Simulated scan of single mutants.
Amino acid sequence: MRRRRWSLYTVLAFGYAFLYLPVLLLVVYSFNASRLVTVWSGFSVKWYGELLHNRQLLDAAWLSIRIAATNATFAVVLGTLAANALVRHGRFRGRTGFELLLTAPLVMPDVIIGLSLLLLFVALQQLVGWPAGRGFTTITIAHITFSLAYVAVVVRARLAQMDRSLEEAAMDLGARPLTVYQRITLPLIAPALLSGWLLAFTLSLDDLVIASFVSGPGATTLPMVVYASVRMGVSPQINALATLIVVFVAVAVTIATLTSRGLGSARTNCRRTRD
């Protein structure tokens, strides 16, 4: 029994090392004074200073953040509406097709999504003159197209598990359906909405393939710039940028976890008070 447990811990240790050791090395070498990313020549933060003066990387990062935030917001709204339709309205005409269209981006290759959206934008431009070019708008629409499917799955699972008696009690006391949804339903599914927003934000920030199809010369996202830079050799500035992203993600995940726990505790207290 003890030997089996030791083997399990060994496998887990190797697994976590395989996943996180490269990230740790990337963070360490972001403070390397040498221009060669694999040769340590002393501690330095000069690459962070040069990163702050690299307009190409900063502009691409700002564009990616704006696209990701806009995409996540719209994906949460549309995904929540889709989840409500599937959970709360039972069977309706076209439900099977609606579910198929909603879940298709989850299994469809990114190349197919990107190519199909590119053809759609080109056809729309020829027919109605919109979009005039490919950039922020086209990338955001493309990201919303596949992100809302992930949000709908998360919110749908939470709605299906939610206790409907709380809503029924509020309506029995005279609350209107919209008031019930705002004051009862939304707080109860808030952790799912937050998780869906973060998931959509991450998917958008990480996307390379779809953005490559629907972007134009004046709109280059951060993954596109990083990919082009890596093809010509890894720059220490990329390590510094990646370290900042890791820190940002770690802080965001920590805040999301604490917020979810706080909402869960509040929900538990409400149930105890009701009981």
Rank of each mutant, 00 (worst) to 15 (best):
R3D: 12
R3S: 10
S7A: 12
L12K: 01
F14M: 00
F14N: 00
A17M: 06
A17Y: 06
Y20N: 05
L21V: 00
L24S: 04
L24A: 04
L26S: 08
L26C: 11
L26T: 13
Y29H: 09
S34W: 07
V37H: 02
T38F: 05
V39W: 06
G42K: 11
F43V: 14
S44I: 03
V45C: 07
E50R: 03
L51P: 02
H53L: 07
L58I: 13
S64I: 10
S64Y: 10
R66E: 14
T73I: 15
F74I: 11
A75V: 12
A75P: 09
V76E: 02
G79T: 06
A83C: 01
L86E: 07
V87Y: 10
R88F: 11
R88H: 13
H89A: 13
R95W: 11
T96H: 12
F98P: 02
L101I: 14
L102C: 05
T103N: 15
A104D: 08
L106I: 04
P109I: 06
D110A: 08
V111K: 02
V111H: 00
L119A: 14
V122Y: 14
V122T: 15
L127H: 06
G129M: 00
P131S: 01
P131T: 01
G133Q: 06
G133F: 03
R134M: 13
T137S: 01
T138N: 03
I141A: 03
I144P: 02
T145V: 03
T145N: 06
S147D: 04
L148R: 00
A152Q: 01
V154Y: 00
V155Q: 07
V155M: 11
A157N: 15
A157L: 01
L159K: 02
L159W: 01
M162E: 12
M162H: 05
R164A: 14
E168F: 00
L173F: 07
G174I: 10
P177A: 01
V180N: 06
T185W: 00
P187W: 02
P187Q: 05
L188G: 13
L194F: 04
G196L: 08
W197T: 03
W197M: 05
L198M: 08
L199V: 12
L199D: 05
T202A: 11
S204L: 00
D206G: 03
L208Q: 12
V209A: 05
A211C: 02
F213C: 03
S215C: 07
P217Q: 10
G218L: 04
T220A: 09
M224C: 10
M224L: 15
Y227E: 09
S229N: 14
S229I: 08
G233R: 06
G233M: 14
S235M: 14
Q237E: 10
N239L: 14
A240S: 04
L241C: 08
A242D: 07
T243S: 13
A252V: 04
A252L: 08
T254R: 09
T254G: 12
T254C: 11
I255N: 09
A256S: 12
A256E: 03
L258W: 10
S260G: 04
L263N: 00
S265I: 09
R267F: 02
T268V: 06
N269G: 10
R272I: 14
T273Q: 11
T273K: 08
T273W: 09
R274F: 10
